[in-house]
Design a protein around this nucleic acid. Sequence first.
DNA 1: CGAAAAATTGCAGATACCGCAAAAGTTCTG
DNA 2: CAGAACTTTTGCGGTATCTGCAATTTTTCG
Lengths: 201, 201
Amino acid sequence: MTAEVGLRERKKAATRAALAGAANRLAVELGVEHVTVEAIAAAADVSPRTFHNYFSSREEAIVASIIDWAERLTDDIEARPADEPIWDSLLAVFMESVEDGAAAHARMMAQIEMVLAHPSVIANQLAALDTMRRRFAEAIAVRTGTDTARDLYPHLIAGAAGLAFKTAVDIWASGPPERSLHELVADGFAQIRAGLPQPGR
Amino acid sequence: MTAEVGLRERKKAATRAALAGAANRLAVELGVEHVTVEAIAAAADVSPRTFHNYFSSREEAIVASIIDWAERLTDDIEARPADEPIWDSLLAVFMESVEDGAAAHARMMAQIEMVLAHPSVIANQLAALDTMRRRFAEAIAVRTGTDTARDLYPHLIAGAAGLAFKTAVDIWASGPPERSLHELVADGFAQIRAGLPQPGR
DNA sequence: CGAAAAATTGCAGATACCGCAAAAGTTCTG
DNA sequence: CAGAACTTTTGCGGTATCTGCAATTTTTCG
């Protein structure tokens, strides 16, 4: 599926990944405000000018790995049996993408704190998530025989799944861990699936 | 409710509004890339340095009016009868906020095109919309007796309403206008309320 | 009025960002 | 494999962003 890549393309992808990785790592380690383009470029062994051939801002590079994650999730969705209800596919894929274990959790928390501490990074993260949503919508449209240009449906499904996931992560990260992330995600999906009925009362 | 404001606060608000208004207007008229902080400051009759006391970036100022809109919508929600089902309140408020008429539509389209033409503005718009979502969630939590720190519910409702609205606007703006914006918004809300069942087949 | 508090401004400096053209590297073709 | 064609990397130069600091002006309050 992803064959036919020459040396040139592979090198470009490697450079991009090196820059994105360095940017993210430095942002978490040193704090966003202490990361310069020069430092990122040096860590990836290219010139500062080359950095700007790949990313148009520091923040874009810092959150670029989200796009990779989106790509993987999209592939996972496409790999699911074609006759599985789309909503089941989405839940399964998101649940699988949550890593267990204290180390993984600590890494996630560090990421979240780094992002939340900087409005400009938040904005770029949301933009990356929006790109992810658009890819999801495409995959879902193919699966469900809908049209992204005409139908609300694929966008709503993709957006709602992302919303449930992000909300679960936000609550998980902000409060004391009353519930596991898996539980929260499952709960969010279930509520949306049920049409978000007004609770209690 | 918003009484007790001295001259100082009113002036600050006026300056902020003047800057945001100038930034947005210039971005639409001249194109984002031709708007400098200096020009915005001049149009609002303050120094460039003062601009940065209010906004930390050009893009933030350009999309700042979204926050005002969010504030008005939030007030509208709070003004609705307390016993109305929350979902009805949201639909009503959003529907009312869509202006009719060719001039209003043209203005909306100009805004949308300006934003879409610049990734950095998209990112900041999404951040502003996210702030709006958070305020909605607060208002909804009060209404429904839920807790934004513990419950997914208010966030999901606020997010889902925003998602339905934004998706409707995106589809309305991108294709030929097969359906009115009102129709699309109503359709989006209805689908989410129904739990996004897989269509047709 | 006069003192305290807050906002505006200019200045200086670090950094981001982008266009351009030269240099270096990769791919294609005979 | 030679060398043409194409792509990427890089340095340079210039404009604009953004921030801290200290002086100045404006507003508030006793």
